[in-house]
Design a protein around this nucleic acid. Structure first.
Lengths: 347, 347
DNA sequence: ACTAATCGCTAAATCGAATTAGTTCAACTA
DNA sequence: TAGTTGAACTAATTCGATTTAGCGATTAGT
């Protein structure tokens, strides 16, 4: 009976099936506020929808609403640690609970998404963790002040651009700064572990330039603070490009200048790998000659020789918060993201 | 003058601006076949469209056409070598030339895409290289048979599902088998290099089970053939899980059974890393004690100690062909994908 | 008792492009 | 000269959901 002709059930089919207008069906299914529907009608509509297996046609909806119920997360091509993985998990979970879909696009900077992607998707918001790492245009102080609200013709130029009001735009921007800080704060965990292992003079290894410049500066700040709190001397810094020979030279230089350094806290696992490679070139062993600890557990640490000790950060709660910001819900309190040391061989 | 109210220009705006109906504009802009348009009108329309900066509203179009001009590529969460990177490049280029957009979604099996993704995107086709690695439903021979093609209501269950006819579906399926074979064929390059380095007894390292079971079997076939062609003895096989201790044991066993083996050709770079790790545990050095060559260059090979020698495969031409198949164009000849050895330290 | 507000619901407009079914006019055929 | 054909367009419908305007009936307010 009243099976929709060939394929899928539409609003109209549900309306016909339940004997009301399609407007009413829409009201019921969307719980439209400001509309009163009798309990009896609601039941009939719901039943009909269930019977026909109705699913809203998302493209039609997107056309009408001007934007799809989608949030796009554009991650850079850089290494993806566990914090990003868990962040995505949280994001996806929270969005899913509100009927939104998360779309993760990797390997593009947000400004350089494939042509037409934003137009075909018309996401409600574009999230871009990398832009939090990159230097902002006009940066007053330390807060996330990527206020590039100028005559931006193209969309998605800023770190996060909501579809609707400036309100959620602000909300998302808010998240970003917080994200970077939230991440950086775990420098504590990293240093504390090394101290527990008996190290006193600890160097910090950062990536040289690139998209991480800003986050690197932030990490350094936190590392200094943490060192001070732990009663350690100011940590020497080595900056590593992607060239291994140069990395080895840099490491040798640091060792000469600070012979007492017995451990290195790396910016992330990739930098830690670079350090380990340089150490191998200098015939140094970790952790005997120099302990190395990574940051933000990556997939390769366990395979490495020596296996990399690192810090695992669970950012799912951040993901949920970011989701709420992106779709314009109340943000609530800042969550805390737990972190713990994954102890392997290198430290 | 006649600036479209607030935001973007629509077909209607172009029609008004050029003094014709919106149907005519659509005919002109789409070069609709079976419609004759005078040169003068065409020019006026084109000029007006350019002047207003008209861009088709892709969502409206998708609603009308039933599917967006988009192709979705769903890669597994597994390691991505250069062949995949270049494949994606080719895909994107060719699609772009025909007004299509490529959307790459990583970390999901095609059958398990985020809820609602397919519906919101409505891609013209879904491409899924991983399914070429996984055991197929009707697999006579050796592939482990996790054939779960049951009562799958959802779409995107198959390796590639086109939106339209069975014709392009066939085209895409065609590509997949070819892709796996095209990749596997480069086992030749791998072995030939080792032979050139003076090796005669060469073992093959494969991943144990997992999603690569089928591709592994294929690679083994090609390796055997290549070995025969090069006049080598039948290559011994070691199978490595993800556990390093087990890998070391496996390697030791192989060395005992085949003491003459002087080189290992790995399934891919990740497996090669595992071999190198096992070698370190056994206090063996590459390439002195055992040469190791990877396959399908990954981003980490250059960082490793010793730096990994591997095979780089350029699959861009395959990508272009897959694109043509996905949007229903003629496929043309099978392209050849060049490969070359990236010589580093391990072999 | 008469106006005002509220309930419960529907008709119709809207979003933007593609497409079907015509319409008009001129040229050409029989 | 009537009839056919084709070129060059246009009006109107369609895709499917959301949303505004509004209608009749009931309830509340003074």
């Amino acid at each position: 009976m009243s099976i929709p002709s060939g394929s899928r059930a539409t609003l109209k089919d549900v309306a016909r099936e339940s004997g009301v207008s399609s407007a009413t069906v829409s009201f019921v299914l969307n719980r439209t506020s400001g509309q009163t529907i009798s309990a009896a009608t609601r039941e009939r509509v719901l039943a009909a929808a269930a019977r026909l297996g109705y699913t809203p046609h998302r493209i039609a909806r997107a056309l009408r609403e001007g934007t799809s119920r989608t949030v796009l997360l554009s991650t850079g091509s850089g290494p993806a640690g566990h914090s990003l993985e868990s962040f995505i998990d949280g994001l996806e979970t929270e969005l899913g609970e509100h009927g939104y879909t998360l779309l993760v696009v990797r390997g593009h900077r947000a400004g350089a998404l494939p042509a037409g992607l934003l137009e075909t998707i018309a996401p409600r918001a574009v999230l871009d963790p990398v832009s939090a790492y990159a230097p902002a245009a006009a940066d007053a102080g330390d807060g996330a002040g990527a206020a590039s609200d100028g005559a931006d013709a193209g969309d998605g130029a800023g770190g996060a651009s909501g579809g609707a009001g400036a309100a959620d735009r602000a909300g998302v921007a808010d998240w970003e700064g917080g994200w970077a800080h939230g991440l950086a704060a775990h420098s504590q965990t990293q240093l504390r572990y090394l101290v527990e292992q008996g190290h006193r003079e600890i160097a910090v290894a950062l990536p040289e330039g690139g998209p991480y410049a800003r986050l690197a500066a932030l990490r350094l700040d936190y590392a200094r603070t943490a060192a001070a709190e732990l009663g350690l001397p100011e940590p020497p810094v080595i900056r590593l490009g992607s060239d291994r020979a140069a990395a080895a030279a840099e490491l040798r230089g640091m060792r000469k200048k600070h012979p007492g350094v017995s451990a290195i806290a790396a910016f992330n696992d990739d930098v830690a790998f670079l350090v380990l490679g340089a150490m191998a070139d200098l015939e140094l062993e970790a952790p005997a000659d120099l302990a190395v600890i990574g940051f933000d557990e990556s997939r390769y640490g366990a395979l490495w020789r020596p296996a990399l000790t690192t810090v695992r950060i669970d950012a799912a709660a951040y993901g949920r918060r970011a989701a709420r910001g992106a779709i314009g819900l109340e943000l609530g309190e800042w969550p805390s993201s737990p972190s713990r040391v994954v102890r392997r061989e290198s430290a």
